[in-house]
Design a protein around this nucleic acid. Structure first.
Lengths: 200, 200
DNA sequence: AGGTTTGGCTAATGGGAGTAGCTTTTAGCT
DNA sequence: AGCTAAAAGCTACTCCCATTAGCCAAACCT
């Protein structure tokens, strides 16, 4: 029988694409094998089972998200950077719901786990946004968690069909960005702008 | 064989408890049947399958959450109400992660679905909080979604082990409440307090 | 008591994850 | 070119889970 020419990367990429199409729950070894023109057991030559597969999809997704958000933020600061990051994040989740779902609830096994590295990278993009607001060192962790919670919550509620009633979702998202921007500005001291009380 | 004395409510309650213990993914017809001292097929006399079971658990959870949050808010307004609601919500999710997970991604089938009713009730508690801030009518939907996203995101990230690094999670949550409070106060006009520019 | 409803059971089906062990392709070496 | 060995498929299982069919006994209701 001819070989399919698979390798771990190809299997993971196909798995990620399939998860985006049919949802993470619809990603099974059977469905993925069919998509790749192969029988289910063959996949175990490239991937260590379903759990390992979703783990690798999560790593892929975090890298892509970090790339997208980091790239979108480039050259911006303050509200512009916040907007860019928020929009890039939401666009990623809406375009790749399956990939994103794979990132939820995966536990990095240690500090050298690629999952840890990619997580940090994705987080770094948001940290850069906060830097532009001049948030105090002691508060960046909290502010970071706030941003993460807010965007994660909004995106997952939306893809989960959680916003059912009246108002326009895009409009809510813009409102939310404005809300956070005001809050962060009130909190921070822009680093390269005039200091609040410079001379005595 | 002696009867086990089950009914739908008992099955749902046991299912919710089991889900809280072992996670929603660990809730299977087999594990629940074992817990109830019964064989798996017997459960189908009370519940219409696993999907129906999680649906009913979601209804139960929404009702309990609405009760808890609504009760916590009673008699408070402004920041006190926000704090009470936020803490009650988070406590509920942390104590009942399985139940809460069941509420995510369930689609109400129509306006008379009990799921719809209970959702509204839970949402109502947060609406009450916003009322205390005097948010403009046109913005309550957005503000509501913001609160929901934020608390949902924070709670799910925490139970999913999403907050791994340094800072204290409880502290972050308090910080987050303060942040939202400032934002909402900046936004609203307290209804029963002096109007901002009363006489010309 | 007698009949009906109800709630439990066993047995079986279908599908998904994962393993064992065989076979063929393919790449590398001589 | 020919040989060998690793790699990449495959078939044939096993086990677990959800669900259905059909049987039988308990509880209830006159």
């Amino acid at each position: 029988m001819p070989r399919a020419g698979l390798d771990p990367a190809a299997v993971v990429a196909a798995g990620a694409a399939l998860a985006d199409e049919v949802g993470l729950a619809g990603l099974t070894m059977g469905s993925l094998a069919e998509r790749l023109g192969v029988r289910p057991p063959s996949l175990y030559k490239h991937v260590d089972g379903l759990e390992d597969l979703t783990r690798r999809i999560a790593v892929l997704a975090l890298g892509e998200a970090a790339e997208a958000i980091g790239g979108a933020v480039q050259g911006y600061a303050g509200r512009d950077a916040l907007e860019a990051a928020a929009r890039a994040f939401r666009a990623f989740v809406l375009e790749h719901p399956g990939r994103y779902a794979a990132t939820i609830g995966v536990e990095p096994s240690g500090p050298d786990d690629p999952l840890t590295t990619e997580s940090r990278r994705a987080l770094g993009a948001f940290t850069a946004v906060l830097r532009g607001y001049g948030i105090a060192e002691s508060e960046t962790d909290h502010a970071l968690r706030m941003l993460r919670s807010l965007f994660h919550g909004f995106a997952t509620l939306q893809v989960g069909g959680g916003f059912r009633w009246s108002a326009d979702v895009d409009e809510s998202f813009e409102w939310l960005i404005a809300f956070v921007d005001r809050g962060l500005r009130a909190l921070g001291t822009p680093p390269s702008t005039a200091a609040p009380a410079a001379a005595p």
